[in-house]
Computed example of a mutant assay.
Amino acid sequence: MPHILTLVAAPGALDPALVSRVRGALEALGAAPGTPDWLAEREAVDIPFADAAAEQAAAAARAALADAPVDAIAMPAEGRRKRLLVADMDSTIVTSETLDEIAAYAGLKERIAEITRRSMNGELDFRQALVERVGMLAGLDVSALEATWAQTAMMPGAAELVGTMRANGATCCLASGGFTFFTGRVAEKLGFHHHVSNVLLIEDGRLTGKVAEPVFDRNAKLTTLKRLATENSLPLAATLAVGDGANDLDMIQAAGLGVAYRAKPVVAAAARARVDHTDLLALLYMQGYRRADFVTA
């Protein structure tokens, strides 16, 4: 079969009856579905199919699932396992928006978080929004960065995503519109080979309200994906990019497997693959890894 539809739910929550319903939807589409292959019992399953486009199959599956909290991702069977991962950090590899959390120490979290929300949904220019938000933090003591890091949690599945892909020979890069203060720590904790992001300028132990040039923006993320693919002699078809914001969209659309992860509406609508309900383990299941294959970073 040339295509695979992968269904992923919370552990123990994928009802075989739902799988049968989705398989019936593929039959109605004329996609000639094959026998389901469980990657993790009642959590993730592959359904091979033919004679239908991946986008059509995914749409049919989501319609059949209705309101069930199950992610459906369709892709070509050939080349499923990717050899380069480029991942956003905030609200993707970590659970929070680190700049918003820093702002809490200046009493500006709600104000800055609203700018972040609009920027990540593509309503504001990323560079302009970043400069504005960082400027509002001028004079803040760097202890706020350490306090924010102490409260930063990894996204469920992040350690397994990086650990498993790395163990299987993939290069892993963290590419963030956030700051090196955090990306360096996250990269070290999870085992990313590389990290690229913005640099907060600090003088006498306080934020100056500025970031170093050039700003690491939407285009820089795409450039990073292409550069690392070239450096590793990989076609873009062998790459995976994941993120949630508008500044991730170019790299998501360019990657062989581009995933909108719990993404802002503008990103979810434009990405070929979406994870709306589950965690980062879904990125391993959609590459055909079984639960027994997972390695923790």
Results as ranks from 00 to 15, higher is better:
residue 173 C to M: 09
residue 244 D to M: 12
residue 89 M to P: 08
residue 295 V to T: 15
residue 17 A to D: 12
residue 205 G to N: 08
residue 32 A to G: 05
residue 69 P to D: 02
residue 76 P to L: 00
residue 121 N to W: 06
residue 262 R to E: 13
residue 265 P to M: 09
residue 207 L to N: 05
residue 45 V to I: 04
residue 209 G to A: 11
residue 145 L to W: 02
residue 171 T to A: 14
residue 77 A to M: 07
residue 134 V to P: 13
residue 21 R to G: 08
residue 214 P to V: 03
residue 63 A to I: 09
residue 165 M to T: 15
residue 202 I to N: 10
residue 90 D to R: 04
residue 40 A to M: 07
residue 120 M to E: 05
residue 190 L to T: 11
residue 92 T to S: 10
residue 207 L to C: 07
residue 37 D to A: 13
residue 110 E to T: 15
residue 44 A to P: 03
residue 21 R to L: 12
residue 239 T to Q: 04
residue 245 G to W: 13
residue 22 V to M: 06
residue 296 T to L: 13
residue 179 F to H: 04
residue 218 R to F: 04
residue 39 L to C: 12
residue 259 V to F: 03
residue 157 G to D: 10
residue 113 A to Q: 04
residue 259 V to Y: 02
residue 262 R to G: 14
residue 155 M to L: 03
residue 206 R to A: 14
residue 42 R to C: 07
residue 265 P to G: 10
residue 195 H to F: 12
residue 280 L to K: 06
residue 224 T to D: 03
residue 2 P to N: 15
residue 166 R to G: 14
residue 245 G to R: 07
residue 64 A to I: 04
residue 102 I to P: 05
residue 76 P to C: 02
residue 197 S to N: 06
residue 126 F to D: 10
residue 255 A to N: 01
residue 183 T to I: 11
residue 39 L to H: 11
residue 116 T to K: 04
residue 74 A to H: 05
residue 235 P to W: 01
residue 167 A to T: 05
residue 124 L to D: 05
residue 121 N to L: 06
residue 160 E to T: 08
residue 25 A to D: 05
residue 246 A to N: 00
residue 192 F to M: 01
residue 204 D to L: 00
residue 176 S to P: 12
residue 113 A to K: 00
residue 180 T to Y: 05
residue 69 P to N: 06
residue 138 A to C: 13
residue 43 E to A: 11
residue 210 K to H: 13
residue 15 D to K: 01
residue 251 M to A: 02
residue 100 D to T: 13
residue 214 P to F: 00
residue 153 A to F: 11
residue 194 H to D: 14
residue 156 P to L: 09
residue 11 P to S: 05
residue 183 T to Y: 07
residue 212 A to D: 12
residue 86 V to N: 09
